[in-house]
Amino acid sequence: MHVYIYDSFLNHNKYHNLLAKIETRITDLGLNGKICRLGASKNYSATIQDEIKRGAKTIIAVGNDETINQVINAMNGSEIPLGIIPVGKNESLVATSLGIGRELLACDILSARRIEKLDLVLANDTLFLTEGKITTKGSIIEINQGYSIEILEGGEVSIINLPLSTVDLPTTGKFKPDDGLLEVFIKTKETANFLKKSVGQSVFTTKELTLDNKSYLLRVDNSIDIKTPIKIKSCPQSLNVIVGKNRTF
């Protein structure tokens, strides 16, 4: 049975027509199943764990990047495939990196059922699939308790499993979400002189690291903020996810 997890923000009237269209498309494709509408009182973990016990064949997150992250955490390493239907005001960067189009296009991707086994990342007690981002200001990174990284200029640190965007990434790195490794990508601000502009890029590959920052939080999956200090490690091959042809890996 397919179990559709609707985020609580979809209870708003403005989404009723769109959800009706999605439900019609799902029925046309023969993918109909149970719909769980989460309200303020309903808890992701309890709802999803109940449905897994009842024999769910696929769990489908319907909502935005935060919904996807909450569903991944509630599934807690289950072998059951995760499907995604991105709905919401903003583009779901997580869905886009998996090659999943918005709304009705996502229903066709569910129907094709192209499943990939991907790594997840555990940051203290929170799982994430794509990237964690934090400012370089005040960030201290220690890799495998072997060496530490100090960043001397302003910029951004990304801890990458599945890149949300490949625009700024150096062509030399691997950035694969199924290799059991994390890439720490540091981009410092553009330095310019009268001849040329250059961006400082650093890349480190590791299985685990610790991150500390007294003032800023790590934002994972473009939605959830986590307080430091954080122990971060790769959890290889922990998520079966339905992806589209246009995925970035």
Binding site: G146, Y147, S148, I149, E150, I151, L152, E153, G155, P170, T172, G173, K174, I186, T188, T191, S198, G200, Q201, S202, V203, F204, T205
Partner: peptide
């Protein structure tokens, strides 16, 4: 062509580094 590690111009690394791939140090 395919560096595993790049230490950029504004980055300082301290400690024991053991790698398998190519390494670029600019910092």
């Amino acid at each position: 062509k395919d560096a595993e590690t790049i230490i950029g111009p504004s980055v300082k690394v301290k400690g024991e580094f053991n790698g398998q791939g190519d390494i670029i140090i600019e910092g």
